[in-house]
């Protein structure tokens, strides 16, 4: 069974690559429209520096925008989950802003922050903030009443209650929200860079598209995919460690 699942896991991507190479090489689909994988991989050999610099730029932008979203999303989520008044006051506002896709904010981001890092930070923040906020709020609200009453009986004040009961108990959902937020933030950086920046992987893709360098476009896409996968896997590993006590 093990061997079978490994064969399936690796076999499918390999089969796709071979079919892709054949389709492109034989000209069934023109190589401009679909460059063969061998040409795409050659891009990594030809311009590793350029890809690395652009990837680093995109990662840096996500790190900043996501950190702001994580801190503010968890804080506001805990407050909304713990205090009925805060939730009532903010609920409608959140529900109106939340469905607006991050990409729809790009024109306003350019007007407010210009072309560059700040616009990208903002778009990533918008994308990552809501999944984190909603998961945190839900996590806090789902904490068993018994824990809360026990803590109150033991004389816990609000601060102690949040710190020692609500946050640890809501941690699994908060982490899920943080992981989802990271994924959304990573997608947002690429979208933001396509329009509102002059560096990064998103910009690299658009630049390559202008001169029909479709091999570079796909190389950029693959870089985005692999980095996104690594981030997700890394976060899952972290989650496992943080939740080991449960």
């Amino acid at each position: 069974m093990e061997r079978r699942s490994l064969a399936l896991k690796v076999g499918t991507p390999v089969a796709v690559l071979i079919a892709w190479e054949v389709i492109s090489r034989t000209g069934i689909i023109s190589p401009v429209l679909l460059p063969p994988p061998s040409k795409v991989f050659a891009v990594f050999v030809e311009m590793p520096g350029q890809i690395a610099v652009n990837a680093a730029t995109s990662l840096y932008r996500v790190a900043v925008g996501y950190s702001i979203a994580a801190v503010s999303g968890v804080t506001l989520g805990v407050l909304m989950g713990a205090y009925k008044d805060v939730e009532t006051a903010l609920d409608l506002l959140v529900e109106i802003i939340r469905p607006i896709p991050p990409i729809a904010w790009i024109p306003m981001a350019i007007v407010w922050f210009g072309i560059g890092d700040a616009s990208a930070f903002f778009i990533i923040f918008i994308g990552a903030f809501f999944p984190i906020l909603l998961s945190t709020r839900a996590g806090v609200k789902h904490v068993d009443r018994i824990y809360i009453e026990a803590a109150l009986n033991l004389g816990a004040d609000d601060k102690a209650l949040i710190r020692h009961v609500l946050l640890p108990a809501a941690l699994p959902e908060i982490l899920t929200g943080l992981r989802t937020g990271l994924g959304v933030g990573w997608m947002c950086v690429v979208a933001a860079e396509m329009i509102a920046a002059k560096s990064g992987l998103g910009y690299m893709i658009i630049e390559a598209q202008r001169v029909l360098a479709t091999d570079q476009v796909i190389a950029g896409m693959l870089t985005i995919g692999v980095l996104g996968l690594l981030m997700d896997r890394g976060f899952r590993a972290l989650e496992k460690r943080l939740l080991a006590w449960m």
């Binding site: 023109s30 190589p31 401009v32 001169v211 029909l212 360098a213 479709t214």
Partner: peptide, 9 residues
């Protein structure tokens, strides 16, 4: 020129 060199017929 760019398109031709990239293989657009």
């Amino acid at each position: 020129i760019t398109a031709y060199c990239k293989g657009v017929p």
